[in-house]
Design a protein around this nucleic acid. Sequence first.
DNA 1: CTCTAGTTTTGCAATAGATGCAACTTTGCA
DNA 2: TGCAAAGTTGCATCTATTGCAAAACTAGAG
Lengths: 209, 209
Amino acid sequence: MDEERARPGLRERKKQRTRQAIATAALRLFAERGYEETTIADIAAAADIAPRTFFGYFPSKEDVVFAEIDDRLAEVSERLRRTPGETPMETIRRSIVDVLNAVVAEHAEYGAIQVALVLERPALRARALQRLTDAQDAIEALLRDLCPGIPEIDAVAASGIAVGGMQAVVAHCRREGYDPVSMRTALDRAVHVVEHGLVSVEALSRPSP
Amino acid sequence: MDEERARPGLRERKKQRTRQAIATAALRLFAERGYEETTIADIAAAADIAPRTFFGYFPSKEDVVFAEIDDRLAEVSERLRRTPGETPMETIRRSIVDVLNAVVAEHAEYGAIQVALVLERPALRARALQRLTDAQDAIEALLRDLCPGIPEIDAVAASGIAVGGMQAVVAHCRREGYDPVSMRTALDRAVHVVEHGLVSVEALSRPSP
DNA sequence: CTCTAGTTTTGCAATAGATGCAACTTTGCA
DNA sequence: TGCAAAGTTGCATCTATTGCAAAACTAGAG
């Protein structure tokens, strides 16, 4: 349970390389000919493994799309720890910013390929949303940890609100092709609304025309 | 484009009956033996149609699970209209309450079967989430309509926050088996947090232990 | 009532993802 | 060097999903 750092293990190392090879090959093929136009067999051939082996690394064709993203998010979740002296609100805010940094970075890096991919294919979009609820659960757990006596519903609502708000804005920015800077500005605004609620959006309190 | 009321049409009527038969049979089988344990062939047999015909009514096995829910949500979206004199904030609040009423009602009625089904199967949960983003888009559109000049990001963030918050609480209540009344109380609390933001959750502002 | 044109339902075949199983290799280590 | 665990692969099989074309059915026009 305590052997993470500095011990890949020769065997383990190879597995990682294979996993990476599969992911890379798959992404390349998806970008070239499209998602459904690429079969498991194609990927296997490109990664130089047997088709059957694919499933030893990824439970489904869909999951390979998120391989890289998952890795990055895993790193981030390491940083989701508490920092002495902070108020829970600050911790949450910092955590959100961390995750967003990862998202924005990933967006700039792989960008176009996967974004388009995930946005088009319903199956992939669904898978992506699944990832989000996982994140939501993680944040809820963090909240409970930070605020031992927090009312159950408050923790649930707060995490849902935070994730929901961020998700909506990120999706919107990607769909509209925002550049990283604009996206950043938009996200800052979203964080503000998450913290201060819909009442802080003046437009919502003005009587409709 | 204007022939909805009072004209089913003999032929059309039969289609609706078949559709209903398929949905009913499918739900029953899912409840009895489980989702993946039920094949399209089984459903077809129970609904007394050819397997191939199933796909003439539903694009996929997953969709049949949401047949009833979709119908209900369609009704609700009819009520998502503005009411003169209300402030946008009030309209949003009322709309959310409307949707929640539908959700709670559906929960009490079909309850156990589908809820368990959707919660267990990853594929179904994903599909359900997809439904949510649709709702989110609808709310965003409503917002834009209500507040002509509202900043793009504000509309996006607000709808994401509202839907995200509600979704989290509803899912939580179902998972924990809340009764309709408790669920209602929880949702009211959630609406409050959505409106006033995370800063309104006292626990979040107290320094962590 | 009957026939025609249009619609639905089916049957059949084929594709592709996913899984269980068992044989075959490779690797870690005594 | 030799064994046992771990990783790969080939094969058979299941199931969802789709294209195609024949068969069955229905609404109306004669």
